[in-house]
């Protein structure tokens, strides 16, 4: 949610290399980043803060690296991929390499997924592999239907 971004970012890891001059840092082994409801777990996270605080870019790699956060209306979003790139300033997340993003209860799997947390807009591409391994798979489950109809109701009576 919006107030996540005003929270401090905490980063924990076994080892870390800080390059003060060009303001990049590399955290390795069981890296954990939290900012409010945002949680990123990965084997290795590279933080690029060259444009100053509040405009950092986190690149997390793992087999897979995982991300989770709860959106404006409290619905949880979680994702995993070989590489997760989180840009704080424009609130976008892009996943690459057997990416999977779970939103409400619709789950999207594909090669590359980018997700804009403000507009809650997701774009997934399959990389057009030959025998479909590059395909994007989306699964809608019954709870979504029940949930969204309630969301639709409270939208109507807002």
């Amino acid at each position: 949610s919006e107030d996540d971004f005003s929270q401090p970012i905490k980063i924990g890891s076994n080892t870390q290399f800080i390059d003060g001059k060009n303001k990049t840092a590399l955290y390795k082994e069981d890296v954990l980043i939290t900012q409010g409801s945002l949680v990123i777990k990965a084997d290795e996270v590279e933080v690029i803060a060259t444009d100053g605080s509040g405009r950092e870019i986190f690149i997390a790699r793992g087999k897979p690296a995982s991300y989770s956060q709860s959106l404006e209306d409290g619905t949880p979003v979680s994702a995993k991929a070989n590489e997760i790139r989180y840009e704080v300033v424009n609130r976008t997340i892009s996943l690459a390499g057997s990416a999977e993003l779970q939103q409400d209860t619709s789950k999207v799997q594909g090669d590359k997924i980018t997700f804009d947390m403000i507009t809650e807009q997701l774009l997934a591409t399959g990389g057009a592999g030959k025998n479909g391994e590059g395909r994007v798979t989306t699964v809608f489950t019954p709870e979504t239907i029940r949930k969204t109809s309630s969301k639709k109701d409270n939208k109507d009576n807002e």
């Binding site: 807009q121 774009l123 399959g126 994007v136």
Partner: peptide, 8 residues
């Protein structure tokens, strides 16, 4: 749903 490109 499986597709080459998905936008939600």
């Amino acid at each position: 749903v499986e597709a080459n490109r998905t936008e939600i």
